[in-house]
Design a protein around this nucleic acid. Structure first.
Length: 270
DNA sequence: AAATTCTCCTGAAGGC
DNA sequence: TGCCTTCAGGAGAATT
């Protein structure tokens, strides 16, 4: 499932192939994504030059002359560079066709999206109220402390709230809380500043490591199958319910928080 | 206002 | 090539 590191990898992977090029055509085979792709999407963007590909949270932003395409990979989305005229496969829902190559979007569960927004992009409702980027200085212990103040909601659901900080998905929320020694169910307002500081560091560290790992897929991006293999071996808690904690050996416990599987060590995380 | 639940979707995994 | 049920999850929308 694409988390921030995968989106970062996606942006870095496609950008060199399409930056500076004119978008010639948008082929929509199935526009029924999270939000329907606009029927007039090609009128809006075709003929414009792509100047830059950036990421905001888990959104891919393609900056054209007069506005941007806002892409989201949802649960199962991927964007690949296709250099030859390979026939589209099942679930290949749209292509962005440039000179010489195209970006092909595949998404079996169709939780992703492709939207057009005139400049300024941050005025789009999906972008307008996003919190700080976790890997920048804008996300720090002071900001997190303010966000947590007086909150009774579990700390885990708070750090997964994109209004508080973007890009922390379920896997990395679990991992970061383990790293910081904080029980995911603890009320956000009852975590000390010192421990929030540990959490900030843990979030930055786990995301940065994952990006570094995802980066190994980068050089083969065009040819790879799009499944960065970094997770499995590095995960300390996610997907390890019942297995021994690597810190103390106690079996890891699983609970549901906000409809999401939450794995933690009752001994190491308070 | 804040917190929780619902919702979209399909493939994988598990039970029998 | 077994069929059916359950589960997974990003994140906005709806509900409590």
């Amino acid at each position: 499932m694409p988390e921030l590191p995968e989106v970062e990898t996606t942006c870095a992977g496609i950008a060199p192939h399409i930056t500076g090029q004119v978008l010639r055509q948008v082929v929509v085979r199935d526009g029924r994504l999270r939000w329907p792709i606009a029927d007039n999407i090609d009128e809006l963007v075709v003929g414009q030059t792509l100047h830059e590909v950036t990421r905001r949270g888990k959104y891919v932003l393609m900056h054209f002359d007069e506005g941007g395409l806002i892409g989201h990979l949802g649960m199962t989305g991927s964007m690949r560079i296709v250099t030859r005229a390979e026939p589209p496969a099942y679930h290949d829902h749209f292509d962005l066709c440039f000179d010489g190559c195209l970006v092909r979007y595949r998404d079996p569960r169709r939780f992703g999206s492709l939207l057009w927004q005139p400049y300024p992009l941050q005025q789009h409702p999906l972008l307008a109220s996003l919190g700080p980027e976790p890997l920048t200085d804008a996300f720090n212990v002071d900001v997190l402390q303010v966000a947590c103040r007086g909150k009774k909601q579990p700390i885990k659901t708070l750090i997964m709230d994109s209004k508080k900080v973007v890009g922390v998905g379920n896997i990395y929320a679990n991992e970061a809380l383990y790293m910081a020694g904080i029980n995911p169910n603890r009320q956000a307002g009852r975590v000390s500043k010192q421990r929030l500081s540990l959490l900030v560091c843990a979030i930055k560290q786990v995301l940065a490591e994952a990006i570094a790992q995802g980066g190994t897929t980068l050089r083969n991006f065009v040819d790879s199958d799009g499944n960065p293999g970094y997770f499995k071996q590095r995960l300390q808690v996610y997907g390890r319910t019942g297995e021994p904690c690597r810190g103390c050996g106690e079996p890891l416990k699983e609970v549901r928080l906000g409809q999401r599987s939450t794995v933690y060590c009752r001994h190491c995380q308070r």
